[in-house]
Amino acid sequence: MKAPRFSYARPDTIAEAIALLTRFGEDARVLAGGQSLVPMLNLRIAAPSILVDINQISALNGLTVEAEKVHVGALTRHAHIESSTDVSKYLPLLALAMPHIAHPAIRTRGTFGGSCALADPAAEIPACSVALDATFVLAGPNGERRVPAQDFFQGALTTALKSDELLTGVEFPKSKPGYAAAFGELTRRKGDYAIVGVAAHGFISQARLSDLRIVIFGASDRPVRARHLESELEGKEASSECIRRAATALDADVEPRDDLHATGETRRYLTRTLASRVLSDLMKVGVS
């Protein structure tokens, strides 16, 4: 089907975009890469009367590497992040995740901010930002506010963003020496959203794991930290056997439900299996 009728504005600045969002409130929607919003319009799942196209706002685009952190502008395209040497150096977890997002032609247009603002429970970028303890920068009519990743994602397709706010960027602490990252997901077909996925980041010294952050996505209404599993492995010398045993702790971390793609029970099993694989990879990366 075709998109319903709407009016379109193309602001050049963040201030102009916020002014439009403030004026039109719930009737307006931000248009970033359009790789989720346009399908929703074409399928008539969404029918906003105003689209505020932010693609011309150059202040929202690109990566900035600072002393302690990396700032990712909301409009930075998936393809740009995928090929960035700064990302592979300072945010290796994100670099591992990017090729799993959709397909090349979709990564040309899809944006970092769009993926976060959409908050699909099975999406890769939200999971990585929770695992890396990122901070979201939101701009509205009364100025800017900062929200930790953990609080930004509030449920399926639900975030801390208000209708008059724009996500301007996401800040990540740079990965420090001794830390390793691993990522994996299960999909029916290459490029699909994950049935379940695991993002892991932690410090490895003498084959012992610490400061672990493991995030499960696709199994709940938002990316969740596997705190039980993390504490089970904290300070341990993590052999494959130890990891496999610890993975049963995941049953206390996620309670997958049935849906079109898999039953809750299948997902629970897949989550354990995948987490074991990803954590074994993490140990390998950390040791090499």
Binding site: Y8, G34, T108, R109
Partner: peptide, 13 residues
């Protein structure tokens, strides 16, 4: 110079 889905963009873009 880069491949895109033409069904997921408006001509105005």
């Amino acid at each position: 110079g880069k491949i895109v889905r033409s069904c997921l963009m408006f001509a105005v873009q």
